[in-house]
């Protein structure tokens, strides 16, 4: 985000800064200076509310957490450079052992949970976003058609998205209760929230239920931009329904779909509330964000390192996705209007 800050600033100023000589002239006349003054509050505000915490977190991630002084039984002040040891703790699984030094992180420590958490987070992301994309596409196609009661269907589909995540999680806890609705309906006896795979499935189900409408809505917006005459001429040319979907709908809806997928991917990678309330992060459903919060209690500097790792990871994924989809996420026009 440190990168995003100045970049966004310069993007805003580019249109107003013509070739150098003119620019200097403008500054002389005061218009350039005025531009700067006008955006100064925004830049200042961004620096204070976004820049400062990031820099501070980055700084703390290289600091030592306070340790217990064996002689007095009190905690030392902490601080002092820790080098990259906080990062090595997570990435290389180096935990403190008795009598000083580091060793492998034993099960039951937060360090031990780093790689499992990372894979669980990625797993949630891949599975839920894939399911949401497919169902969301179906919903969008349905909402796009003109039929009686379309307004009602659209409203019904959007309801889950309008419910706060915490409430969603609580609702699903009732459904997933061992004596709850789902087991009764399915005739099963799963421990939905206290067994590894059912718990993971539960998180995915609740997430898909809640956020598919979001994807559907974005896709619907894309669908509405496709002219009906395209379909008509395709029909005249004898294209089947499947051909019209793959050759017309998909390519034309791709930009909207890409934006939806990227937003959802980043969302799931940062997911905290849903598994926290549904399973407490137990049973192999602890995401990276949950791990960060747990670690905060045990050592804030080490937590800062973990959140930096998470931040860089998510940033990397976002970057890759933008590259792959060539998505127009930020709204910056590509060689169009310039």
């Amino acid at each position: 985000m440190t990168i995003a800050g100045p970049a966004a600033g310069s993007a805003q100023t580019t249109p107003t800064s013509p070739p150098k000589a003119v620019a200097r002239n403008k500054i002389k006349t005061g218009e350039g200076r005025l531009a700067w003054m006008l955006i100064a509050p925004t830049v200042l505000l961004l620096a204070v509310i976004t820049g400062y915490p990031i820099v501070k977190a980055l700084y703390s991630s290289f600091q030592k957490d306070s340790g217990l002084n064996a002689a007095t039984g009190f905690f030392d002040q902490g601080g002092g450079s820790a080098g990259v040891s906080n990062y090595k703790h997570w990435l290389l699984q180096q935990c403190p052992v008795q009598g000083g030094g580091v060793g492998k992180c034993p099960p039951g420590t937060l360090g031990h949970e780093f790689w499992p958490s990372l894979s669980v987070t990625v797993g949630f992301t891949v599975v839920s976003v894939a399911i949401e994309a497919v169902i969301g596409m179906g919903m969008a196609l349905m909402m796009h058609r003109a039929f009686k009661g379309r307004g009602l269907v659209r409203a019904a589909i959007l309801v889950p998205w309008a419910i706060p995540t915490a409430v969603t999680a609580k609702l699903w806890t009732v459904v997933f209760d061992p004596n709850g609705v789902l087991n009764k309906v399915l005739g099963t006896n799963y421990q939905w929230t206290s067994d590894k795979w059912p718990a993971r499935a539960a998180v995915v189900i609740a997430d898909v239920w809640k956020t598919t409408p979001f994807i559907a809505l974005l896709i619907l917006a894309g669908l509405q931009g496709i002219g009906a005459e395209l379909y008509e001429s395709a029909k005249v040319d004898g294209a089947s329904a499947w051909q019209r979907f793959t050759k017309i709908t998909l390519p034309l809806v791709k930009p909207a779909l890409a934006v939806a997928l990227i937003f959802r991917t980043l969302d799931v990678l940062r997911m905290y509330d849903l598994p926290k309330i549904l399973t407490g992060g137990a049973n192999g459903t602890s995401t990276l964000s949950i791990l960060v919060v747990d670690q905060l209690q045990q050592g804030p500097n080490s937590a800062a390192a973990l959140s930096t790792i998470t931040f860089i990871f998510i940033f990397g994924v976002a970057f890759l996705m933008v590259r792959i989809f060539g998505a127009n996420v930020t709204g910056a026009s590509k060689g169009g209007t310039k």
Partner: peptide, 30 residues
Amino acid sequence: VNTFAALQGQKSTQQALADMQSAIQSATSG
């Protein structure tokens, strides 16, 4: 974490206690 794994039958009582021992040791050496 280690008790839960033992109750679920994912590890033996012995293993759970051994892991608990080293995890506590690690947590209190920080």
